[in-house]
């Protein structure tokens, strides 16, 4: 009788870097996140906008930007949208909303959702204090106002640090899952989200400055927004390249329309601002259009990534191609 030689355990393992396309009746091997994309997408957008509004207000204050009072006030007030509307959106997306407070039971460094909860808590406290001091200072006698401004100047620093976290942790919320499209490029996705947050915050505040008649600050904020867009564009090129080399870019077609708006929102502002720099009469309108395009693009970047990620989770071939030994972190 012939015996087949005993294969060594490692030889028996199906080590193959090439994936041959096998699926189990095409059934998904993963479950997509049960988030409502418009709701959570809106939250991610708001978190970015508000977090960065606080960062910009603080930076302007600390850098003693000329004629900064209006910008600082508006930045501090705008940031209050995250603790209010943002929190409502988050609780709304829970499937048992009445138990939202269970999020505060623990702090878990392995869970970006837990990290984010605490970032939002910290942001709410410090931004809330800063905004409250700001509002109060606008109403009281100058002597008191100086004290209140002092308070705001102290609380804005931790608020801005939390704000930076608020504008970026949402990328790690998506990346720290098994959804292929979110997991494939954690670093460049985070840079995309962070810079898109910066662009949206700068764009919103620039628009407000323009309408408050403060031209030079508006121009600086526009420049900041374009710089952020440039970073975002660079990071998105890296992400796209990663998706392509991993063979998982097809899922992005599921969110083609949203992605198109997001792309317009990152490219059109450059052209619009260039035109605004030339034309004197319509400059304000063109710049406003650029700001609006940035805001729309920033929102669609988030919902688009979420939709495309869900689709990648539903495509077993994408996951299997991604979950190959060759893709494991070294």
């Amino acid at each position: 009788m012939n015996f087949i030689p005993l294969p060594s355990p490692s030889a028996a393992r199906p080590v193959s870097d090439a994936y041959d396309g096998t699926t189990y009746y095409g059934r998904p091997a993963l479950k997509p996140a049960p988030f409502e994309n418009s709701v959570v997408g809106s939250y991610i957008f708001l978190a970015g906008l508000c977090g960065v509004a606080q960062v910009i207000a603080t930076v302007a204050d600390v850098a003693r930007a000329p004629r900064r009072e209006g910008l600082v006030r508006r930045g501090r007030l705008l940031s209050m949208l995250a603790p209010t509307l943002g929190s409502v959106l988050l609780v709304y997306d829970l499937h048992t909303p009445k138990r939202f407070y269970n999020m505060l039971r623990i702090a878990r460094p392995t869970s970006p959702m837990s990290i984010g909860t605490w970032i939002l808590m910290g942001f709410s406290i410090f931004s809330g204090a800063t905004a409250a001091a700001q509002v109060a200072a606008d109403w009281v006698r100058p002597g008191w106002a100086r004290l209140l401004h002092g308070i705001a100047r102290t609380t804005q620093v931790p608020a801005a640090v939390a704000g930076a976290g608020l504008g970026t942790y949402t990328a790690s919320l998506l990346s720290s899952t098994s959804t292929p499209l979110w997991a494939a490029a954690p670093k460049s996705l985070a840079v995309q989200f962070g810079s898109s947050s910066m662009a949206s915050g700068a764009a919103a505040l620039a628009m407000a400055e323009r309408h408050a008649g403060s031209r030079s600050l508006a121009r600086k904020l526009d420049t900041l927004a374009l710089a952020a867009l440039a970073v975002e564009l660079g990071a998105s090129v890296v992400s796209e390249a990663t998706y392509r080399t991993r063979g998982i870019s097809a899922a992005e077609d599921a969110a083609a329309d949203t992605r198109t708006i997001a792309q317009i929102g990152t490219i059109a502002p450059f052209a619009l601002q260039m035109l605004a720099g030339k034309g004197k009469r319509s400059a304000g309108i063109l710049s406003d259009l650029a700001s609006l395009a940035i805001l729309a693009g920033s929102f669609c970047l988030r919902t688009g990534v979420m939709e495309a990620g869900d689709e990648s989770a539903r495509r077993p071939q994408d996951y299997f191609r991604f979950a190959k030994p060759g893709n494991l972190p070294k």
Binding site: A164, T168, S172, P186, V191
Partner: peptide, 17 residues
Amino acid sequence: RVAPSLLSGLAAVAGLA
């Protein structure tokens, strides 16, 4: 992926700040 992602995002925002 938590740490690499968080740090890259924060680096981007810090750079822009």
